[in-house]
Simulated scan of single mutants.
Amino acid sequence: MSKPKNVWKIFFKDKKHGGHRCSSEEFLSLEAREKLFHLDGGKTLLDFGCGSAELLTYYALEYEQLVGVDFSPSMLEEASKRIEKKKCQNINLILADHETLWKNLDSSFDRITAAGVIQYLTFQEIDTFIFEASKYLNKDGKIVFFDILDSRLYPLWKIGVFSRDTNVFKILCKIGFEFRTMISASFKNRPKDILGFSHNPYTIEKIANKHGFKMTYVQSMYYEYKYHAIMRKT
Rank of each mutant, 00 (worst) to 15 (best):
Y154E: 08
K142V: 00
E54P: 02
I175S: 05
I143N: 01
S29L: 07
S184Q: 11
A185F: 06
A79S: 07
R190N: 15
P201V: 14
G116S: 11
S108A: 11
R190C: 13
K139Y: 06
S24Y: 05
G68R: 00
K3W: 15
V7L: 10
L46H: 08
A79P: 02
V7P: 03
S198H: 02
F131W: 13
T57K: 08
H20R: 00
K210V: 13
T166I: 03
T44H: 11
L61C: 08
I204N: 03
Y120K: 12
K233S: 07
E205A: 14
V144N: 03
T181V: 14
G141E: 03
G18V: 02
A115V: 10
L56E: 04
T122C: 14
K81H: 09
K210D: 15
R232K: 12
I94Y: 08
I194M: 13
S72V: 00
F169Q: 02
I207W: 13
R152K: 14
N90M: 07
S29W: 05
D47I: 08
L153I: 15
T234E: 08
G68L: 02
H98A: 08
E224L: 06
R152P: 12
Y120S: 10
V161S: 08
E64I: 05
E26P: 11
G41K: 04
A208H: 09
L93A: 04
P4Q: 11
A115T: 12
I10H: 11
V218H: 05
H20N: 08
S184L: 12
A53N: 02
W157A: 11
Y136K: 03
L36Y: 10
E78V: 12
Y222D: 01
M1E: 15
K81S: 09
L95G: 06
D40E: 14
P191G: 05
S24T: 13
L45V: 05
G68V: 04
G51E: 06
K226N: 00
D70C: 01
N138F: 00
G49F: 01
I159K: 01
N104R: 08
G18F: 00
L149Y: 07
A32F: 06
H199M: 05
F162W: 08
I118L: 06
F213R: 06
R33W: 05
G196S: 10
H199C: 09
K174R: 10
K233A: 04
S107M: 10
V67F: 03
C88Q: 14
S52Y: 09
M221W: 06
G116N: 10
R190L: 14
I204S: 07
H20C: 01
Y59C: 02
Y222F: 12
Q89R: 15
K233M: 05
K87T: 12
S186H: 11
D140T: 02
